[in-house]
């Protein structure tokens, strides 16, 4: 591993994200009543924390300038399929019920880690649907249906 002494760009982006987060929150928090030190309004503490977040973001950015660059790859494939699986599940659970949404979740999330294994996926889906039914619908009486609404 060769260490390169150039500014750690990805880390600076992370610090910038923190700073933007703090700034956005600050702009919103300034809209709340500040009050005085003696009788603080709802805005006082948030403003103080926002300023702290921004100051720390700047400090981390300065610190990261001296740090060596570490290279690591981002797991785009898991990121994509896991996110997709969860989003699809949330869209289906209220309308189609437990079984379709869960099968979709398992099929899509399985794509995150190739190879695709149809048999084990089928068994897993069946097992999880049964467990889910027993624990959450018949056990905890959650207002969910197996199919449709």
């Amino acid at each position: 591993m060769q260490q390169r002494m150039r500014p750690n760009l990805s880390e600076l982006v992370a610090c910038a994200a923190n700073a933007v987060f703090g700034l956005t929150a600050l702009v919103i928090a300034l809209g709340y009543e500040l009050g005085s030190v003696r009788r603080m309004g709802p805005g006082f503490f948030p403003v103080a924390v926002c300023v702290t977040v921004m100051a720390l973001a700047v400090a981390t950015a300065i610190e990261s300038l001296g740090a060596p660059v570490e290279r690591s790859s981002t797991a785009w494939r898991p990121l994509l399929f896991i996110s997709l699986a969860v989003i699809v599940w949330t869209q289906l659970i209220d309308s189609l019920g437990l079984v379709p949404s869960t099968v979709a979740l398992i099929v899509i999330s399985s794509l995150a880690k190739p190879p695709f294994r149809p048999v084990s996926m089928l068994l897993l889906s069946t097992g999880i649907c049964i467990a889910g039914y027993l624990i959450f619908i018949s056990g905890l009486r959650m207002p969910l249906t197996l199919f449709g609404r």
Binding site: W89, L124, I128, G132
Partner: peptide, 23 residues
């Protein structure tokens, strides 16, 4: 792990959902 993580993901989803029945 390929058996484990879809199951975990399911329990995470339904677990969070069950708190307020909110997707």
């Amino acid at each position: 792990y390929h058996i484990l993580y879809p199951a975990m993901l399911f329990f995470i989803c339904i677990g969070v959902y069950s708190v307020n029945n909110s997707s």
